[in-house]
Amino acid sequence: MNKKITTATLPVFDMVAQLDSNEAISEYLSQVQAEGDSDELKRALGYVAKAYASLTDTTPTADK
């Protein structure tokens, strides 16, 4: 059975979701920096900022 794959059936890739630890963030930035593409580095820093914010979310919760 051959099922045709199209871009419409592919899941959306979320880079921020992949950056789920300090180690993952560090490795990602190392890889991007090694490529030497300043535009990609700017994008990567945005992803890292979002990922880091979710890792350090200290929003207080109300005790009921």
Rank of each mutant, 00 (worst) to 15 (best):
L41Q: 05
D14P: 00
P11H: 01
A44V: 03
L45T: 08
I25N: 08
D20E: 13
E27H: 12
D20H: 12
V16S: 04
A24K: 14
V48I: 02
D63I: 07
D39F: 13
I5C: 04
N22Q: 09
T56D: 01
T9H: 07
D39A: 15
F13L: 11
G46W: 03
V12H: 09
A34F: 13
K42A: 15
N2E: 12
Y28M: 01
I25M: 09
K42W: 00
T61D: 09
I5S: 01
Y28P: 03
Q31G: 13
A51G: 03
Q31W: 06
A53D: 14
E23M: 12
T9W: 10
G46P: 02
T7N: 14
N2G: 04
A49G: 05
S26F: 04
Q31D: 12
S30A: 13
Y28H: 03
Y28D: 00
V48G: 02
S21K: 05
Y47A: 09
D37P: 04
K64F: 15
A34S: 10
S54P: 03
E27Q: 15
K3E: 08
S21V: 07
T7R: 09
V32L: 02
E40G: 01
K42Y: 05
T58I: 08
S54H: 10
P11I: 04
A44R: 02
M1C: 07
T61S: 12
A53G: 09
V12A: 13
D63P: 05
S21D: 00
M1T: 10
D37M: 06
E23N: 11
G36L: 02
A51Y: 00
S30E: 11
K42C: 05
Y52L: 07
A44I: 03
T58S: 12
T61A: 11
E35L: 14
E23D: 14
S54D: 14
T9F: 13
L55C: 01
A49N: 09
L55S: 03
L29Q: 01
K64N: 10
G46K: 05
A44M: 06
T59K: 03
L29G: 00
G46I: 02
F13R: 10
S30N: 13
D14M: 00
Y47S: 07
G36H: 02
A34V: 04
L55P: 01
K50N: 07
A17C: 00
K4Q: 14
Y28W: 00
L41G: 02
I25Y: 05
S21H: 01
P60G: 08
T56G: 01
K64E: 12
T61F: 11
F13V: 08
S30V: 09
T56E: 06
Y52G: 02
L29E: 04
S26L: 09
L45H: 09
K50L: 08
A34N: 07
E40D: 15
T9G: 07
A24M: 05
M15E: 10
D14H: 07
A53S: 10
M15N: 10
L55M: 07
F13H: 12
L29M: 12
S30Q: 12
N2P: 07
K50I: 03
